[in-house]
Design a binder for these strands. Sequence first.
DNA 1: GTCTATATAAAGATAGAC
DNA 2: GTCTATCTTTATATAGAC
Lengths: 218, 218
Amino acid sequence: MAPTGRDFVITSGQQRLTRQESRGRTRARLLEASAAVFSERGFYGASVEEIAERAGFSKGAFYSNFESKDDLFLALLDDRIDADLRALEVLAEDSSVPAFLEFVATRASRRGDYGEQWALLSAEFWLHAVRNPELANKLAARQQAGRAALARVIEGLCAQMGRKAPERAEDLASVILAVDDGLVLQEALNPNAVPGDLRLRALLLFVQAISAGHADAE
Amino acid sequence: MAPTGRDFVITSGQQRLTRQESRGRTRARLLEASAAVFSERGFYGASVEEIAERAGFSKGAFYSNFESKDDLFLALLDDRIDADLRALEVLAEDSSVPAFLEFVATRASRRGDYGEQWALLSAEFWLHAVRNPELANKLAARQQAGRAALARVIEGLCAQMGRKAPERAEDLASVILAVDDGLVLQEALNPNAVPGDLRLRALLLFVQAISAGHADAE
DNA sequence: GTCTATATAAAGATAGAC
DNA sequence: GTCTATCTTTATATAGAC
């Protein structure tokens, strides 16, 4: 279910790999190339052919490493989610408001070279998955993991501030993620429409709500 | 620049139209059919052919009434936006917290038969437009109108509560719209992941922020 | 304005040779 | 595993008859 890719060196790649031989090598290169092509063209705009070419392979090679374009994207998604989850776990253990704000502020850059495009791309795939029940299940499971991890951070934050956590920290996590996703979309369409610091200011609103004991918004 | 469509009756349509003859008639039927097909298949999944067939016409007829699929969608969008703007103007004049909450709660149903799908569809087109500068400009202008209208509602709300309005009510409007968009996406992927009343609860959070005088989140 | 027929193009995916 | 070549499908859009 969870394709890897993170066991392999994804750098320029003159060096000999000690394990997994060339199988993972090609796969890793395709993943790497797909990140670039996806970020340039979007999910629908990116063709398997261009991804394969960019990686220096043919379509045939692509299809012997991935079932489909969807499958490829899920593999890419897993890499990003794993990174996010690890960061959230660290954050949950050592919770503080400044650390939390910094986490959010630096999310894009932490996501690698194409981090700025990632939220957009992710939304595109999200909407694509909505029309495809199988994909929707797979994606929903991954999102639930992210939501739960963020909820744990919120609980840690509450504890650190001496506040009782909201009954359903996951709901607050949902709202925070929603603000982030929504504002990213607005910025993408028109960067002038939204001040760059609005995401952080909105977040502060939630922190204030937590510290005021109104975290459950009721 | 702004295609119409709103001068014509879009209901079942047995009645005789008094003006614009049959030209608008076909156009209106295509618009009507497109709303159904778009909501079933999404923006990318909907083909011009199916839309034309559903309306009882051929592709040729379609292309003599619309420049392209993008053009069609923009026309549809304008209808919805006009409706939203009118509702917001009414709300701005007679502001009250209950009226505001009701406005948000009933937004989907107010949007017609396919209202539930509209937010999803709109997001899909949004992401499509991001990759196309011309479209992006057109869509951004429409969004800005919506944002400004909501900002006026917020200002009315502040006045009615005896609070000074935030310096940039539009920013608060952006955040509110972002929450709404983001939560709709989460619900669409997995209805179980998000309680149905979360959008309203999140909204209450902002109302509380306004009434506490922290509307500018600073 | 509308229709049928078609041009054009590009996509995802597969077959079979190496 | 990888390549070349191809299958198959489907899309947007147009041409020309009526």
